[in-house]
Computed example of a mutant assay.
Amino acid sequence: MTIQDRRRARMRSGLGLVGTMLMTAGIAAILFAWWGVAHTGYVWEQIPYVVSGGILGVGLIGVGGFLYFGSWLTKLVEEQRQTTYALLQLLEERAAERVDQL
């Protein structure tokens, strides 16, 4: 495994971890906003909870999901590159065998 492969793997796992943490923080912000809205009867007291907790929570979930999806795509691309490289090596070996037979 080369240094570049290690960096890619570290970046992929870092993206997944940060994405997971952001989604968790978003869910916590939404739950906090719900708790605040549920425990007050006045609309003018509920609006700050909805704005600060609800909208922020949805934003955090969106950004976290995007990062996690990017991590997943990076893993798929890496696996595809490995498969393509293995297939290329196999084709080169077969071509060399055919040349030897002629």
Score class of each variant (00 low, 15 high):
2 T>R: 12
2 T>Y: 13
2 T>V: 02
4 Q>S: 14
6 R>F: 10
6 R>W: 08
7 R>V: 09
8 R>Q: 14
9 A>S: 10
10 R>A: 14
12 R>D: 05
12 R>S: 05
13 S>Q: 11
15 L>W: 02
15 L>E: 03
18 V>T: 07
22 L>E: 00
23 M>F: 04
24 T>R: 03
24 T>F: 07
24 T>K: 01
25 A>G: 02
26 G>H: 05
27 I>C: 00
27 I>V: 14
28 A>D: 02
28 A>Y: 01
29 A>V: 00
31 L>V: 05
31 L>T: 03
32 F>G: 02
33 A>R: 01
33 A>K: 03
35 W>G: 01
37 V>K: 03
39 H>Q: 04
39 H>D: 06
39 H>W: 02
40 T>V: 07
41 G>L: 02
44 W>A: 02
46 Q>C: 06
46 Q>I: 03
47 I>C: 02
47 I>L: 14
47 I>K: 04
48 P>L: 10
50 V>Q: 09
50 V>F: 11
51 V>K: 06
51 V>M: 11
54 G>Q: 08
54 G>L: 02
55 I>Y: 13
55 I>D: 03
55 I>R: 01
56 L>R: 07
56 L>Q: 00
56 L>Y: 03
57 G>F: 07
58 V>E: 01
58 V>L: 15
59 G>S: 09
60 L>Q: 05
63 V>M: 13
63 V>R: 03
65 G>P: 04
65 G>N: 11
65 G>T: 11
66 F>N: 09
66 F>D: 08
67 L>H: 07
70 G>W: 01
71 S>L: 07
73 L>S: 08
76 L>I: 12
76 L>R: 15
76 L>D: 08
76 L>G: 11
77 V>C: 08
78 E>K: 11
78 E>I: 12
79 E>V: 13
79 E>A: 15
81 R>P: 00
82 Q>T: 05
82 Q>K: 15
84 T>M: 12
87 L>A: 11
87 L>T: 11
88 L>F: 07
88 L>N: 10
88 L>E: 12
92 E>S: 09
92 E>W: 08
93 E>H: 11
93 E>P: 00
93 E>F: 07
94 R>N: 07
95 A>V: 12
96 A>N: 06
97 E>H: 13
99 V>T: 13
99 V>F: 04
100 D>P: 00
101 Q>E: 14
101 Q>C: 03
102 L>A: 09
102 L>M: 11
102 L>E: 08
